[in-house]
Simulated scan of single mutants.
Amino acid sequence: MQTLFSILGIYLFIAVGFGAKWAFKEKIDDRTITLLSVYFLQLFLTFWGLLKRPIDTALLFAPSLYLAITVASLLLMIPLAKLLFHDTKERSIATVAALIGNTGNLGIPLAIAMFGEESIPYTTLINLVNVFVVSTVGVFYYSRGEFDVRNSLLNILKLPVLWAAIAAIALNLIGYRPSPAVDKTLMMGAYASMTMQLILFGIYLYGIKMGELKIRLTLWVNGTKFIFIPLIAFGVLSAVEMDPMVKGILFLELLVPMAVANVNLASLYHCTPRTVTIQVFMTSAIFLGIAPILPTLLHLF
Rank of each mutant, 00 (worst) to 15 (best):
F132P: 01
I227A: 15
A97D: 09
L59S: 12
L294S: 06
F24L: 13
R177A: 06
V38C: 01
P257Y: 12
P273G: 09
Y206D: 08
Q197T: 11
A94D: 09
G175Q: 04
A181D: 11
M77P: 03
E90V: 02
M242W: 08
F61N: 00
K27R: 15
A72S: 13
W22S: 04
D29T: 08
P63S: 05
A62H: 02
E212L: 05
T185W: 06
P257N: 08
D148W: 14
Y269S: 03
M258E: 10
K158P: 12
V236K: 03
A190S: 15
A181P: 04
Q197S: 12
M77R: 04
L84R: 05
Y141E: 05
A72H: 02
L74W: 06
V263Q: 09
K158V: 10
S238Q: 11
N172P: 05
R144F: 03
I55V: 15
L288W: 02
L41Q: 04
A72V: 13
L198S: 12
I69R: 00
L128R: 07
D183V: 00
L213Q: 09
T275V: 11
L252K: 11
L67M: 14
F5D: 10
N155R: 12
I293M: 14
F115D: 00
G207D: 12
W48T: 02
A239Y: 06
M77I: 12
V131P: 00
F40Q: 09
T34D: 10
S119V: 13
L300T: 12
F281Y: 11
V280D: 05
G223L: 14
P109I: 05
L250D: 01
L125H: 07
A167W: 06
G101H: 03
S193H: 11
Q197W: 00
N127R: 06
A23G: 10
G104W: 09
A285C: 09
F301I: 10
L36K: 03
G138T: 09
E146W: 07
H270V: 06
A111Y: 02
N151P: 03
I203S: 05
V71W: 07
L4N: 13
M242A: 13
S267A: 14
M1C: 07
G223C: 14
I69S: 01
A167P: 12
P178Y: 05
G189M: 05
L231A: 15
V182M: 14
G175N: 06
G116F: 12
I166L: 14
T3C: 07
H299Q: 11
V263C: 09
W163R: 01
A58C: 01
K247E: 06
T70S: 13
G19V: 11
P121G: 04
A68P: 03
W22P: 00
G223N: 12
E118T: 13
